[in-house]
Write a protein that binds this DNA or RNA. Structure first.
Lengths: 120, 120
DNA sequence: GATACCGGTATAGAATCTATACCGTCCCGG
DNA sequence: CCGGGACGGTATAGATTCTATACCGGTATC
């Protein structure tokens, strides 16, 4: 049985999936929810620099795709908790790898950029 | 010795690195150059739907970051070859994993979306 | 000399992201 | 009962990025 989906095909549905998980803030949210559920404000503080609009939109999209769950907790005071679903947790390994690559290759990239700048 | 870089910090240089490798078409190019170098037109045909402008810009950015090399080959007729550098090849495993996740979880995502649509 | 391929540019419009300000609800202290 | 703050967002405008589409100069081939 061959591959069912191929991102290289222009109209393959995997394109939209890839687009979503590659979106600007998805990798941050998945990594942030690694250990435990978090509230909106907690996420905003944790992912420094994200605007509430970007956070809202990314969370909504991820919820729509079944990657996270949004739970209103009617405690006192009431609040909202975002958590990874099983599907979202399956993204954890690949996206953690991306994050780690970025964090560990900063010097390589900076060296390459400096060298490229110097050559002009 | 603690972590040197942390993507969650707003001004950490790893942010720009992450931004670059998460860019719209980077994952496609890295996956396309997995096996062998390719020419501009070859890449454009392989990554269906990419516009020449997007391809040019992504290739330039990746070259600037040292992920790929651009070689003009003065053969007859002359042409241009793009290839992964060692640094680019180190991205192959994580980005292939992302691609594979996207290709293998299409049904899950579609199910989640259908369910979310149905609930409204 | 005409035509085709390669490796791109140019331009305009659409979509997306960012910055910044604001809002309604709930709770707590005074 | 009133003020203030935390929470979970919205609203608006501007900047940035992406897409669609057309075009172009150089080289080879017919």
């Amino acid at each position: 049985m061959g591959k069912a989906y191929n991102v290289m095909a222009a109209t393959c549905p995997s394109r939209t999936v890839l687009h979503r998980i590659g979106a600007r803030w998805t990798v941050f949210i998945v990594n942030a929810l690694d250990n435990r559920p978090m509230r909106f404000t907690e996420l905003k503080a944790h992912i420094r620099g994200i605007t509430p609009k970007a956070l809202t939109e990314t969370l909504r999209a991820m919820e729509y795709d079944g990657l996270i769950s949004r739970t209103e907790i009617p405690a006192n005071p009431p609040h909202v908790e975002y958590a990874l679903t099983d599907l979202g947790r399956s993204l954890l390994a690949p996206l953690r790898a991306i994050r780690e690559w970025a964090e560990s290759h900063v010097p390589d990239i900076e060296r390459a950029r400096a060298q490229a700048d110097a050559q002009r």
